[in-house]
Design a protein around this nucleic acid. Sequence first.
RNA 1: GGCGCUUUCGUCUAGCGGCUAGGACACAUGCCUCUCACGCAUGGAACACGGGUUCGAUUCCCGUAGGCGCUACCA
Length: 522
Amino acid sequence: MNSSKVRVRFAPSPTGPLHIGGVRTALYNYLFARQHGGDLIFRIEDTDSTRFVPGAEEYIIEAFHWLGIQFDEGVSFGGNYGPYRQSERKDIYKKYVGQLLQAGRAYIAFDTPEELKARRDEAEGAGQKFQYDASTRMQMRNSLTLGAEETQRLIDAGEPYVVRFLIQPGEDVHVDDIIRGDVVINSSVLDDKVLWKSADQLPTYHLANIVDDHLMEVTHVIRGEEWLPSAPLHVLLYRAFGWEDTMPRFAHLPLLLKPDGKGKLSKRDGDRLGFPVFPLEWHNPETGEVSSGYREQGYLPEAVVNFLALLGWNPGDDQELMSLQEMVQKFNLEKCSKNGARFDYVKGFWFNREYLLRRSDAEWAPAFVSLLAAQGITCSEERAAQVVELMKSKVIEYQTNDGPRKRNVSFVSDLWPLCRFFFVAPTSFNTEDKFIRKNWKEGTAAEMQQMLNLLATVDDFSAEGQKAVVDPWVEQTGIKPWNAWRVCLVGEGQGPDMYALSAFLGKEEVLRRMDFAIATLQ
RNA sequence: GGCGCUUUCGUCUAGCGGCUAGGACACAUGCCUCUCACGCAUGGAACACGGGUUCGAUUCCCGUAGGCGCUACCA
């Protein structure tokens, strides 16, 4: 048993794609491990054979790889405490369950799921609640009531059975939680939890979890608040095994809540409100259903990590934008908040924008180029970068529950609806449009014709080159051509600086668009 | 229902007995301006309620109410 090196683990169940709340739990484990120079273990808790989903494990590994959260050991990462997949540790659990049975801390129960359900229904009918515990266990079919001989006879006869943990009632069990302090639950409200299932001949979470954390020398258990009610059971298990002196410390994290309404964040909320709940896009192998992912939506991993980190924790100063390295330095479990955090995905837009803006225009270009390609437009990365430079500070409309709203460009994909006219000339003009009505009046066509003739003489069609010729003409004639010119080149009242746009389009295209507008709007 | 956790602007939060209760997102307004914007500036916006403890409570204690979780041979 080596000293006091911090060892933490993230132990998902491969029942589907990794939920964003799970990502945050893993992130906090990662930050804690790195900060203390400890190890982060990746364990797969696949003890529910009925809920196993193929591909989930690979998905989870890929998601962390994308996010930049690195594990030190575990499934696919190696290590000296393996195997790290619980389904491969069956013999180990069996041995420890035997130990508990031997010591009289657990017992064998033959009650079938049907019998149990009948008892529950019966109790419910009487407005009560059935619980398998000290108050009821002597009325059930188990080794306590049947005696050793009969128990052995039933086992030999092939009768299926579970192993239950024998809980002594009337004891206050303390859980020392790093985030919540001393949490006390009386053992009388705990039930004799099933430790070993008859259905799939595997341990339950509770048993496997305690055995693994002990054997893998885990020092801190950082997990979601949904585990807090069973933490006393876990403490009791450590005690029953005689492992209390090396029991890990607990930290139960607040949950991620729905952006609106009640309850914890679910996949449904993402579908309903239009934001991803999973790091990567997920294709359900059974239903074929596709769930969107942060990566595919155009989020930068740094943005997702930063956003998530601040949901339930903050460094105590006013800094919000932090690299993973900075977070590792500043992270503090004691400063985690205790109450659930509503998942405000709109703030995620802002984070992504901040990180996107830190990248150069050239870095945006490849993604933008492939986006354009999907629209059937061929564009070089150089030209794409020019458009990015001109348009990344714009605003785009997006849909919400309460109708359309506006936000700053926060994704590369936001660019396309704003940039269409860079690549596609106007083919018609909406004369009802406020901007066009205001800026295209009688005589405008003639002014534009003048300007067209003037531009036709310009050899240096850079923004500066055009400016050198057009500005004096503006000065001379008093004509303010920009808005009308915008109508010609853009078709509506938006877009970048006109000289910049014109230079991008090039002389030939500019003259053609102007000519078309003059002819169409006359 | 039982048990547990929790409660500061719309949202994420700072605060650890004495503050004009701070920041960020979102929202609104103004400036800038060839359009829409960005940017910059400004503004509105919170201590759930009731008792204590104290010279003094957002802060400590106890209730109440609300929120969340757990209550499976799921994790």
